[in-house]
Design a binder for these strands. Structure first.
Lengths: 348, 348
DNA sequence: CTGTTAGCGCCTTCAG
DNA sequence: CTGAAGGCGCTAACAG
């Protein structure tokens, strides 16, 4: 026995499908007697509208898609959580597509979304604006996040990585640290590049020389990089890592080397993932409201969808780019006293 | 200018829509000349098939939906990651729907999936098997995870919570601990109930009395519960928490109380979320391959979809229930030596 | 091998 | 206020 269709309902209620549609969508006016007959039939058949069919005829899916490079780590999960919240609040669904290691892959994923979503949020280090718009055959509203080489043609959001890094270094300088090293992220990564940039700026502005080490955004790479730095003849008295995962690796390396943090070496990370508040010493880091960013991204996209933004291309500088400013959170790894931290966690 | 449709392609190629459909879907045979003409037109118009329309006519969406209570914590994000991997491997998409605080809410979410997905994975502590099937008007393949009160009518997967808890207690007993307390999860929660059950079983089997405290699966509640336990006249020498988040709260409470772990109090958690390996002391806990579970769940669901399981209801005991057995991972919180742990992390 | 023609399930003018 | 009919974009028999 197959699921009931609108026609079954119409027959059972003794009305036309149009009337059923009217009471179910709330559009148009329906007399009371018919309305109740319809509702009755719906109940009896336990009818549920087929959203796919509805989408086809209304040409709106009430679904937003999100394309991301991968799903590892707390950053992405927090982001998705925020997006989901915003979607639910507006009666939308979220479809996720991840693990897009290269541009071709990501491009295919975007294409496969056609007819499935009303708009797309794209996080892809691999896709520049050109490749992106090429993937979007019929203009679909899009919001770019952390896209890097944007030409301002698309609405976008990004973190102020340069500014964040700079404020981290300034804090360390204020603490009297002078030999401040940086553990950078992977080479191709935009975030990594910008954070390193901010570091170099601030450090040279202070008249000290940059000390650079390379990492891969993983904890292990942070550990390795720090091990090298700590073994050098004149060891740094502070290390700024390009993300929290690496910063935690740095913390472990310091401990391993028999040194003390922050006494011997202060440490600063970036992102403020939940773990940052749980490790010992607590990690000083640049806080980003990740879930909030996700929520905001969906809200903007939905607004663009409603407004038909994708249909009306405008001047290049008209596509709004929103900047998120990270906030420095000082914890023990920079000498803040230990506190009863970590009590907002909701981890299951 | 709207996106090109199959008809546009057909016209430009000078063939019928059927032929276009044939080359695009790979079904049926097409002569070389027509095939290339079609491909050419597709290219020229940068045509992408409308998956919504395709779904309507094939009555398959290539999307699986997942309904979950919320999206907090590493457990769910790992689970989703695993599901996404499996979906991509089979060319499917994943649509997530979370934050279903009560049965009515979850039920509505399930209904709203009709016509949008080919099958559903449901994690809902609030929905029993009856309410669930009621929500599924036209039989949609479903896989239940951690559902609790199942009557075996639906395919399902679950963690052996009782057995896991029991093995934790046995380990502690083997360490010579005799005053073993338990910090349980929220009252209504199935997992919490089963883990407590395993604890009580093992402890009474060993001839010692249960010492119970109540938590809410959050770190803060674990801290509070442990604080109470540690203040009691005869303090426990081991604490088993129903999940890792609470166990970490316990760790902090012990430290706060000026006691040492594991010397004064040993601690065991449940789940083995990534943080468990990063906190100090490293947390002994019951490891579950969360991402693997997610992957497996999708694979089973897809198999059921292919097999048309939902169409052919069978005897009650025919609906397979798969049990995941947790594995005890011993770390410092139970006296294991500290190791250079935590180097598999991929956290961004 | 290719074109024609029904639908898939629903919404939506347009008459009545 | 209601019903009939066309169409959303595509696939799938069925003839040619």
């Amino acid at each position: 026995m197959k699921a009931a269709t609108i026609r079954d309902v119409a027959e059972r209620a003794g009305v036309s499908v149009a009337s059923v549609s009217r009471v179910l969508t709330g559009a148009g006016v329906v007399a009371e007697p018919t309305r109740s007959k319809v509702l009755e039939a719906v109940e009896a058949l336990s009818y549920v509208p087929h959203s796919g069919a509805r989408s086809l005829s209304t040409s709106r899916t009430d679904v937003v898609g999100v394309i991301l490079p991968d799903l590892f780590g707390e950053f992405f999960s927090e982001l998705i959580r925020g997006m989901d919240v915003a979607c639910r609040a507006q009666g939308r669904h979220l479809i996720v597509s991840s693990s897009h290691d290269d541009a071709a892959n990501a491009s295919a994923a975007i294409r496969s979304m056609r007819g499935r979503v009303d708009g797309l949020i794209v996080l892809s280090p691999h896709l520049d604006s050109g490749a992106l718009t090429a993937s979007l055959s019929g203009r679909l509203p899009v919001l770019l996040m952390n896209g890097g080489d944007l030409d301002g043609q698309q609405p976008s959001m990004a973190v102020d990585n340069v500014g964040g890094a700079r404020s981290a270094i300034e804090h360390l300088l204020g603490l009297g640290r002078r030999r401040i090293a940086h553990v950078g992220g992977p080479n191709g990564n935009v975030e990594a590049r910008e954070r390193k940039q901010g570091y170099v700026d601030a450090v040279t502005a202070a008249g000290t020389a940059p000390i650079l080490a390379q990492g891969e955004f993983t904890q292990a790479s942070g550990f390795a990089a720090a091990a090298r730095l700590l073994a050098s003849s004149d060891r740094p008295d502070a290390i700024f890592a390009a993300n929290d995962a690496m910063a935690i690796g740095v913390l472990l390396a310091i401990q391993e080397a028999g040194l003390r943090c922050p006494d011997d070496v202060a440490v600063v990370g970036f992102d403020d993932v939940p773990i940052a508040d749980l490790v010992r010493p607590g990690l000083t880091t640049l806080h980003i409201d990740i879930a909030g960013m996700g929520r905001r991204a969906v809200e903007r996209l939905l607004a663009d969808i409603e407004g038909g933004v994708a249909l009306a291309p405008r001047a290049a500088n008209d596509a709004v780019r929103e900047i998120i400013t990270p906030r420095l959170v000082v914890r023990q790894s920079c000498g803040a006293p230990a506190s009863n931290q970590g009590f907002s966690g909701e981890t299951t």
